[in-house]
Nucleic acid binder design. Sequence first.
DNA 1: CTTATTTAGTTCCATATAGAACTTGACATC
DNA 2: GATGTCAAGTTCTATATGGAACTAAATAAG
Lengths: 187, 187
Amino acid sequence: MQFANDFVVNRRSGGVSGMDEMTEAKLWTNPCPFAFRLNYLALRYNTPCYGWVQKTEGLSRIEYVVIYSIALCEGGQARDIAHSSGFPKNSLSRAMAKLEKEGLIYREQDESDRRNQSLYLTENGRALFDRTVAVFEMREREMLDGLKEDELKTLSNLLAKVVLNCAPLSDEIPDSFNPQEAGKTET
Amino acid sequence: MQFANDFVVNRRSGGVSGMDEMTEAKLWTNPCPFAFRLNYLALRYNTPCYGWVQKTEGLSRIEYVVIYSIALCEGGQARDIAHSSGFPKNSLSRAMAKLEKEGLIYREQDESDRRNQSLYLTENGRALFDRTVAVFEMREREMLDGLKEDELKTLSNLLAKVVLNCAPLSDEIPDSFNPQEAGKTET
DNA sequence: CTTATTTAGTTCCATATAGAACTTGACATC
DNA sequence: GATGTCAAGTTCTATATGGAACTAAATAAG
């Protein structure tokens, strides 16, 4: 099998990084090396951070995502959280109900369209965010530690470019997708 | 609405990308922009791809991860899949049992240490991988479409650098972590 | 040669999760 | 001003999930 891909780096020095063979294979000889690196790094970020809020604040990942989302976009709606985070709306509904009962968020029904409810942090909710966000920032900083200032900027710009490129893509792959066609260059 | 864009990228042209306000905020005015971009891109990759294998092959995400992992690292062990994917070992155990019953994988007990079992794809399992992997490759290609050849290389190298930097990091954040200390430079 | 510790993998089971159906409201069409 | 369609959120419920306890094997310590 051929992995002709820019993302394949010649790094199979056999355990230089102290990783197991499978992780090494997934990183360096993977037909989808970009996707794996994304998922791997996301994992190395999410696991410790959300584990920590769970322990220290008793909030599940989805509950903290709600807090975080509102903190960044005061007055946003559940639908936006669903869309930006990928959590299904029913799970979010449950999370919001709990957070509201605990006095961390509140909702206001939109007068112009009464199906919509805008979400806000209470004082307690804001305080919680303020005292926890530093851990997330620290973890991110720690992960990016090895990059120089200009590399950091470049990485940020390139990821932004990929994000913008992805924005209009459809998330539907037809059932009848034919792998044979996949290799051909698309205009 | 305008977002003060003090962070890295100057791209707030106001909805050019057709995203909702919250997603925009999370992308461009986020204390952890790197982490969010990772998670966002991972989501935009995982959702369509694993949704597609579910529909077309009847395999759940974790089941396909097992197949994929073995395909990349023949003879690997369950522990390695757990470590490289983040799935708990009991869920993997269940997934492997199902895949074995369906004749897609088989296991061989290691003679030198009989706790270990090496994992292999059957002919059917390999065929399944071969006919599905193109969809994953296509999605990755599609996502990276906007990047030029040299940008792709740069991105690949920078992500690799971050991965290597993360490898030795601990995933434990002490319960008693003090955010006040977070800003200070750690030796 | 015990006895304790560690590791790989499995089983058990309480609970989290997410699909599907439902409710309510907006808005379009006739 | 009915009737149909679509969108936001909630509720219901069957199932997937993952923590904890367990088994079995290797290794270390006494």
